[in-house]
Nucleic acid binder design. Structure first.
Length: 698
DNA sequence: GTTAGGG
DNA sequence: CCCTAAC
């Protein structure tokens, strides 16, 4: 189980590395870490360029879309950076900028089904100032024998999570990697504070999540109780009002005990108004494979695979992958696992009568304070952890209280409903950030309400008691969830309509829950234009889908065998990442973004017609395979639908037709073909009937 | 997982 | 393009 930590590739220039990102990219050497770093870099830049100054960095950035829907390129004159943002699937990474100053990112791509073992999740767990770093003991750093402050080589592995420290500009980033679970994307957040200046004090409850490398174990013997009534705001120079105190160990011995003796230093985040903001990037879909030397190796083709589904046949995948950024959300109310936690801890008195769910006091104030002040923003919550079996609720009540039992629960985090942000490709990164910020601000401004889910079902009756509802039972707490929903009266415009609750998000497993309690994350897909597929008429081969045309980053990520940033995490307890509650009802999970509309080109129509002529209607899968095999974004359902509309189009007058005109010749063939195969089908149906009649006659 | 059909 | 029933 030895984790192999390979040297990291150089970071982009901006990040203090040698080679420029672009260069790396060209060499296909970019690794996931680089992406993380880059995103982080943008965040940092964003911070720096933030409010007042017309920061040049941001201004210089250029956002160039490639093929209109896949990549955004941020370029600085000297330090080319690139982060891809794509709206869907096949081979691209998807970055979502979320939350107030948070980035929620995810990368995924796929050409082939996943090989779960090869998927790693990354998360940027923390960002420290250099001074913070220097202040750490070696053990705190990584507890190994590496040279003291050599961030690049420090690495540790805890509970299946490998951590690595990297120097990044003026701060130190901690990146965690963890293998994804089969069929289940891990949930990692990438969190970094944004202010270098103010490191959390040692008392900072916020960073409790950090398990110092050396101490990283579940052994609670080392735990040092935290001041549970710590009031963040008063304690720090930085006025953090959203500090969450999380008692992560689920043991009930102490209300706010925490296994960790040491806190992590997070850079104080930038604030918006009075809020501290965290930037978060979740990269749970990232797979970083080829970095392992032993055993686990990514697919030969080096594609990144989405982890969220099982491989069946490639076909299925085709459909799945296009659903990417959005569909998967449906199934995993994912999101950076513990972007924020709210801690609701009990006083820990053994009597079992826990303090009530504190409102705004003590350790638990974090949650309340945070969410009340900002409006609940993040929805997710349920999480499984602690050996992979619990939920975000650590709640439980002692069994024998005669009456008036209190339900203890802890909400690990909330996730904010998705936002859909549209922004011209020509926009600058800076404007993108502003746009996101606005959207986030809007949604956090009161357009939310809290929903309660039990066993995946919404509890609508507000008048029921917890007892009546069943929430008071221990076994129910595991299936208790909260979600944020658009407030009917105040639904932000940018919010997708619908009442879909945003399911509580599962959280990272214990070992991973080191994300500081951040503000919540609002995810937003970056919708870009649609590429026009082009048809290679040879053999009806349609080669469209730019997305699948292995995005550079995609390949690079996987081929970056040479790069050394990522850490392979050998087999581990996968359950730890299986954070999605079984009861999750995907239907109510989240709002699902509609795929972008991608009108069929004439060439595609041609190919379709030709295939249908050959295969007939009713064999859409075959049609797909035959003529659209490489058009990842065209599913057989799409083809079927297109045929349907073609038939319709052919039947209406040209004046009534819309869109790119389809040559009449093609439409004629459509009608002919349709008529022919309809007849075939009819006769096929007649046969058995005739046979039956024959039988009867006999 | 596919297919068919309504929305 | 989505959703779902039916298989």
């Amino acid at each position: 189980m030895a984790t192999r930590f390979l040297p990291c590739p150089e970071l982009p220039d901006q990040l203090g590395g040698g080679r420029s990102f672009k260069k790396k990219h060209e060499e296909n050497k970019m690794c996931a870490f680089d992406l993380l770093a880059i995103v982080a870099g943008n965040l940092l830049l964003d911070k720096e360029s933030a409010p007042s100054s017309s920061n040049t960095t941001a201004d210089k950035n250029q956002c160039a879309a490639v093929n209109s829907n896949v990549k955004y390129e941020w370029q600085d004159e000297e330090k080319p950076l690139k982060v891809e943002a794509c709206d869907h699937g096949s081979a691209a990474r998807n970055f979502f900028v979320c939350g107030p100053s948070q980035v929620h990112g995810q990368g995924c791509s796929s050409k082939e089904p996943l090989v779960a073992q090869n998927n790693l999740n990354l998360r940027l767990a923390s960002a420290l100032t250099k001074s913070d770093w220097a202040g750490r003991s070696d053990a705190e750093k990584l507890g190994n024998d590496k040279s003291k402050n050599d961030m690049g080589t420090f690495a540790r592995k805890v509970e299946g999570v490998s951590s690595e420290y990297r120097e990044f500009g003026d701060c130190i980033l901690e990146v965690e990697t963890k293998r994804a679970v089969k069929d289940e994307p891990g949930r990692f957040g990438m969190v970094l504070g944004s202010n270098v200046a103010n490191a959390c004090s040692l008392e900072d409850p916020v960073v409790l999540d950090a398990k110092p490398p050396a101490l990283a174990s579940l052994d609670s013997s080392a735990k040092v109780p935290l001041c549970r009534n710590h009031i963040p705001n008063s304690s720090y120079p930085t006025n953090r009002d959203d500090v969450n105190v999380v008692s992560r160990d689920d043991d009930e011995n102490s209300g706010c005990s925490h296994p960790i003796t040491k806190k992590k230093f997070f850079r104080p985040a930038p604030r918006i108004g009075n809020r501290r903001i965290r930037k978060i990037m979740a990269s749970k879909y990232w797979k970083v494979a080829p970095r392992f030397k032993d055993g686990t190796v990514s697919n030969p083709d080096g594609d990144l695979k989405p982890v969220f589904r099982k491989r069946k046949n490639y076909y299925r995948q085709q459909r799945s992958e296009r659903l990417y950024p959005f569909k998967k959300r449906k199934h995993y109310a994912y999101s950076s696992p513990s972007n924020s936690y709210g801690g609701m801890s009990c006083n820990g008195d053994a009597s079992g009568s826990c303090s009530r769910m504190h409102g705004v006091t003590g350790a638990s104030s974090s949650f309340v304070a945070q969410h009340t002040s900002l409006q609940p923003r993040d929805s997710h919550g349920m999480r499984t952890f602690n050996g992979g079996a619990s939920s975000s609720f650590v709640g439980q009540r002692t069994s024998f209280q005669p009456r008036d039992c209190h339900v203890k629960l802890r909400i690990k985090s909330f996730r904010v409903p998705e936002l859909l942000v549209e922004i011209p490709e020509s926009s600058t990164v800076g404007s993108l950030k502003r746009t996101v910020m606005e959207a986030v601000t809007a949604i956090l401004g009161g357009g939310l309400r809290v929903g309660v889910l039990l066993q995946g079902k919404k509890v609508r009756d507000d008048n029921k008691t917890l007892l009546q509802t069943g929430i008071s039972h221990n076994n129910q707490l595991d299936s208790l969830g909260f979600c944020l929903e658009p407030n009917p009266s105040r639904t932000p415009p940018s919010l997708c309509p619908g009442d879909s609750p945003f399911l509580l998000q599962c959280d990272t497993p214990e070992p991973l829950s080191r994300c500081p309690p951040t503000a919540d994350v609002v995810c937003q897909g970056i919708c870009t234009g649609s590429p026009e597929p082009h048809v290679n008429n040879l053999g009806n081969y349609i080669e469209s889908d730019h997305d699948s045309a292995s995005s550079p980053a995609d390949t690079s990520m996987d081929k970056s065998t040479n790069s050394k940033a990522l850490v392979a995490v050998p087999a581990m307890n996968v359950e730890a990442l299986a954070v999605v509650p079984a009861h999750r009802n995907s239907k109510q999970s989240e709002i699902v973004q509609r795929r972008i509309r991608r009108p069929f080109s004439v060439a595609e129509v041609e190919a379709l017609v030709q295939a249908v002529e050959k295969l007939g209607t009713g064999r859409w899968r075959d049609v797909k395979l035959r003529a659209f095999d490489n058009a990842k974004h065209r599913t057989y359902v799409d083809l079927k639908d297109k045929w349907k509309t073609l038939v319709h189009t052919a039947r209406i007058s040209p004046q009534q037709r819309r869109g790119e005109p389809v040559p009449q010749e093609l439409l004629d063939r459509v009608l002919t073909t349709h008529a022919y195969w309809s007849q075939q089908q009819a006769s096929q149906q007649l046969k058995p009937q005739q046979q039956a009649e024959t039988c009867l006659l006999l």
